[in-house]
Design a protein around this nucleic acid. Structure first.
Lengths: 202, 202
DNA sequence: CGTCTATTTGAATGTACTCAAAAGCGGTGG
DNA sequence: CCACCGCTTTTGAGTACATTCAAATAGACG
């Protein structure tokens, strides 16, 4: 494909734009950063991090869609995060402490990602201290989102949560099988199906 | 009270010890930091931040116990966090953007806190950039905790969540009325009561 | 001692789950 | 091009977990 090269080269700098929304990187710093990220194309369905192994990468999504999920004792999956263009994902606890991960991460569609290995993360934070600020703000925002999600679970029924999900993540319903959306919402696929029918009938 | 002075002066440095667990403050930096924090004693029941008002402070708890909670349309409260010695609390979203808060924060017991006003927060992050690292790590840890809590909601029944809560926050059950523990667990006080009876009978 | 709030109890109800089976859908091979 | 396979989604019946509402009991505080 002719467009592939353009596409990829454009997207590799996307992470720099994302970072520059909160801090200002010098060109040399941006180049250095790009040199430590590992760009990678993931085919649909690829498992990039696996439960039980220490998390190798902090992952930035250039394009496509990934999900990070937890598998319980009964073998069922529970999605904790979808990540599309401009999002970071991974098991932070496993990544920072290098202990076995409780999450897996998988590409739901063909995706382009930038991988930041643990040693590189430590290194870039040493060499470009203002990145601490970027990640501080990023984690702070994510924390707010997580708190909202906990509150939604308290205060809203599954139907209400589904409606809000659709409004917030409009594009996701195309990529993502319904069973994973159910999982993200904390309900069974059967029940989501019943909710959808009920909403259709209106 | 004779003990008050000793008590307060000892505890005011607690925040410095907490920060020094992740970074190393110079004595001058520690002094400067302490000069911008506002120490304050809160009587039991005091409401320090209120829904609807922009959050004024990022709060560090020296001693005692606070809770941050959300009040829904029907008027019932939902606890999103308890904070005891060594914890930070507040509505991060409201604090950083200075928009009306959706949370309130209240002292559940007589407490000593260190308040960091928004302008001071911005200022100390400018003047002591390595604090960015401290907050980055703090928010990162908090994020991991929040993710675990979401997963627990997915995978565990109310009874299991209550048992885990008791194990994790052993001391809290003394301070905190059961109805707030129920709220934190995302269940009604009536149902918590039934769970407790069932556990007693074993 | 009385008042106010927190906790407990019970009955009826609702939300969401489990299990089993059918229907839909996309890809693959004959 | 059709038949088959595997996986996702839908449907339905029965069930379990948790809620609501109302009322009784227990505890804290002035």
């Amino acid at each position: 494909m002719e467009t592939a090269y353009f596409y990829t080269s454009m997207n590799n700098t996307s992470v720099i734009h994302t970072i520059n929304r909160y801090i200002t990187l010098e060109p040399a710093e941006a180049d250095y950063l790009l040199s430590v990220f590992m760009p990678r194309a993931l085919p649909q369905g690829e498992l990039i991090e696996k439960t039980g192994d220490p998390t190798r990468y902090f992952i930035y999504v250039n394009s496509g869609c990934l999900m990070t999920y937890f598998t319980d004792q009964t073998g069922s999956d529970h999605v904790i995060q979808f990540a599309t263009t401009g999002w970071w994902t991974g098991d932070l606890h496993s990544f920072t402490r290098q202990v076995p991960s409780i999450y897996s991460t998988r590409a739901l569609a063909e995706s382009h990602v930038m991988l930041l290995p643990k040693v590189s993360m430590d290194q870039v934070l040493e060499e470009i201290p203002k990145l601490e600020r970027f990640f501080r703000i990023t984690f702070q925002n994510s924390l707010v989102t997580h708190q909202h999600r906990i509150i939604q679970h308290y205060t809203a029924t599954a139907e209400e949560r589904y409606i809000m999900f659709r409004e917030k993540y409009t594009s996701l319903e195309q990529y993502v099988p319904l069973k994973y959306i159910a999982s993200y919402l904390g309900i069974t696929p059967e029940f989501l199906s019943k909710i959808r029918r009920k909403l259709m009938e209106k």
